[in-house]
């Protein structure tokens, strides 16, 4: 449905998007994840025909956006980062105008406007001026505008930005409903959003694609091995030795010590569940087993690992990048809080 081939966009000396390629199938909800300034908006602007690519091709709904812009635009609904509203128009007037320029036939206009207002839940504001709406309502009117001509492809640039938590949940539900009938691309820098709404994710940083996969696969690819968090009331050396003796365990490292209570992160071979053996090893020795839980790497951590400069200095293929950072996490026990600071700042540069 959407195909992007070696897309590059340069603004003078600045390369905003660098050789990006991906495919989105019909009916898919595809997430665009990256820090601010990663090139998400630029890529979307190329897909919507707002600006042409410097190099490469983008095909939307079977039409090249550069060669057949009108046909491609007819099949695309776009919600820009700031909803493009005319403050002096009422919501209904505005949507009627949008229906006209998007070529909705006169007879269907009223029905389509009503339907899209219903869908985006702005019907109660139909006669308000767009300039007087709250941020949340503006965003929704923008969404109604994108849905208006019932396009095959929906491109939503940060659709939940500026919404309150309840509205965020509603918007995510709406986007999920839209998948199937429509092909949806949405961008965000909020990680949980991707896990909750998208079937596939592309992570981009500094204009380059870092990884493309489903949220689940990204998590497991990155883990590489299973890690357990164990808290035991016993001396650290004894426990460490006992845990390391368990077959399948590859590494045991001390995470924290509080009095006699020690916490360990225990890595095992991929796909091998050692929880029973771990529990047995501790309990049969008469130590107190205070906590035992699997450590799953959250998307947030993946994101930080993938987009941190330290994780892999030269830009390598995504696979190599992934395993390298996975090891780093297993070795170094970088707590999520710690990891969140440095890479976060780097990502904004």
């Amino acid at each position: 449905m959407i195909e992007v081939q070696h897309l590059t966009k340069r603004y003078g000396p600045v390369t905003a998007v660098d050789d990006v390629s991906f495919r989105v199938e019909r009916g898919e909800i595809f997430g665009f994840l990256g820090p601010n300034g990663a090139g998400k908006t630029t890529t979307m602007r190329v897909l919507t025909g707002y600006m042409p690519p410097t190099e490469g091709r983008a095909i939307v709904a079977g039409y090249d956006v550069l060669d057949h812009p009108i046909e491609a635009k007819r099949r695309t609904g776009y919600l820009p980062e700031t909803p493009p509203l005319y403050p002096e128009m009422t919501v209904r007037d505005y949507l009627t105008f949008v229906a006209k320029i998007k070529g909705v036939p006169r007879k269907e206009r009223r029905v389509r406007v009503d339907a899209s207002m219903e869908r985006a839940r702005v019907a109660d504001m139909a006669n308000r001026h767009c300039g007087k709406l709250s941020k949340g309502y503006r965003q929704r009117v923008g969404l109604a505008q994108a849905l208006l001509h019932n396009p095959e492809v929906l491109i939503l640039d940060e659709p939940t930005a500026g919404l309150d938590p309840k509205q965020i949940i509603e918007t995510r539900e709406l986007i999920k409903q839209l998948g199937g009938d429509h092909t949806v691309i949405l961008s965000t820098h909020i990680l949980p959003e991707v896990g909750q709404t998208c079937q596939r994710v592309v992570i981009i940083n500094k204009g380059r694609v870092v990884a493309v996969d489903s949220p689940e696969n990204l998590t497991s690819r990155l883990r590489g091995s299973e890690t357990m968090y164990v808290q035991v009331d016993a001396t650290s050396e004894d426990t460490k030795r006992a845990l390391e003796a368990i077959p399948g365990v590859t590494q045991v490292s001390l995470a924290d010590t509080r009095g006699t209570v020690n916490s360990f992160e225990v890595s095992s071979e991929a796909g091998r569940d050692v929880r029973r053996e771990l529990a047995a090893a501790v309990v049969t020795r008469g130590w107190g087993l205070l906590e035992l839980r699997p450590l799953r790497m959250s998307l947030e951590e993946i994101f930080l690992h993938l987009t941190t400069d330290e994780s892999a200095a030269p830009p390598e293929p995504a696979g190599a990048d992934l395993s390298a950072s996975a090891e780093a996490s297993a070795d170094g026990q970088v707590g999520p809080a710690e990891a969140a600071h440095e890479p976060g700042e780097n990502a904004h540069e």
């Binding site: 602007r45 919507t48 025909g49 707002y50 009108i70 046909e71 635009k73 007819r74 695309t76 776009y78 820009p80 493009p84 949008v98 320029i101 998007k102 070529g103 505008q145």
Partner: peptide
């Protein structure tokens, strides 16, 4: 952005 991404 609305005008430039509409089929016009």
């Amino acid at each position: 952005e609305l005008l430039l991404t509409a089929p016009l």
